[in-house]
């Protein structure tokens, strides 16, 4: 089964990009499944179902969404195998911009959008820097020059990656991405595989339910601003 991880900041267009790409993949009679990771709620599974794609949703609730992702990816792969999928796509938001759910040797896609501002590529960490493919969306509403500057900045941040422009409404560009997805590596399991980069650590008193403000309530892994 081919495995692809798709990540990107909230509202960057991940679901639209995946849906438009699946429309092309389905023409090859591929059985595709999506596992959507989100934090509080999502309606995207309905959109996938409409497309005739098998879909599972994982809501992290009060847990760190990306740590939640890591602890559930293996089960997701098992589900994909039991459903006899040809391709499993995981969709997750790198909510703090620092996280990267990308796994070594597993095709990794990061979706960012032109409206998020030209400094965004610099602000996003390993999710962008270590991706194999960077998809840039919402190019239809900004000027050519802004598209070029944004793509240049993305290239600076992620020089190894290919850049693909996709219009999430019309699907322009999604065909190119579908070709790349078909080249993704096959795996029966991801046990013992490694992340491309560690996730941010945060084991402090607030992780375990503390709500009071003040140094005396703070224990564990703590970092202070130099003011």
């Amino acid at each position: 089964m081919k495995i692809v991880t798709v990540s990107g900041p909230p509202s960057s267009g991940k679901t639209s990009v995946i849906i438009k790409t699946i429309e092309y993949l389905k023409k090859d009679q591929l059985e595709i499944g999506v596992v959507k990771f989100d934090s509080l709620s999502t309606y995207d599974d309905e959109m996938y179902k409409k497309l005739g794609v098998k879909v599972k949703v994982g809501l992290s609730g009060n847990l760190c969404p990306d740590h939640y992702y890591m602890t559930n990816i293996e089960d997701s792969v098992k589900w994909g195998i039991s459903e006899k999928l040809d391709m499993l796509i995981s969709e997750s938001a790198g909510l703090c911009n620092r996280c990267s759910p990308h796994i070594r040797d597993v095709l990794a896609i990061c979706v960012i959008d032109n409206l998020s501002g030209i400094n965004t590529p610099k602000k996003i960490g390993p999710m962008l820097r270590l991706a194999d493919i960077v998809v840039i969306t919402k190019g239809d509403i900004v000027s050519q020059a802004e598209r070029e500057v944004f793509a240049f900045r993305a290239k600076q941040s992620s020089p190894r990656a290919s850049i693909i422009f996709i219009n999430g409404i019309t699907g322009q560009g999604a065909y190119d991405l579908s070709l790349r997805l078909k080249e993704a590596n096959d795996y029966e399991s991801v046990i013992d595989k490694k992340l491309r980069f560690s996730m941010p650590a945060a084991v402090c008193s607030y992780c375990t339910g503390e709500i009071r403000i003040g140094e005396k309530y703070q224990t564990g892994n703590i970092k202070k601003i130099k003011l």
Binding site: L115, D140, I141, S143
Partner: peptide, 8 residues
């Protein structure tokens, strides 16, 4: 295109 704007 007509829909494109400067956002910077």
């Amino acid at each position: 295109s007509q829909n494109m704007n400067f956002v910077m």
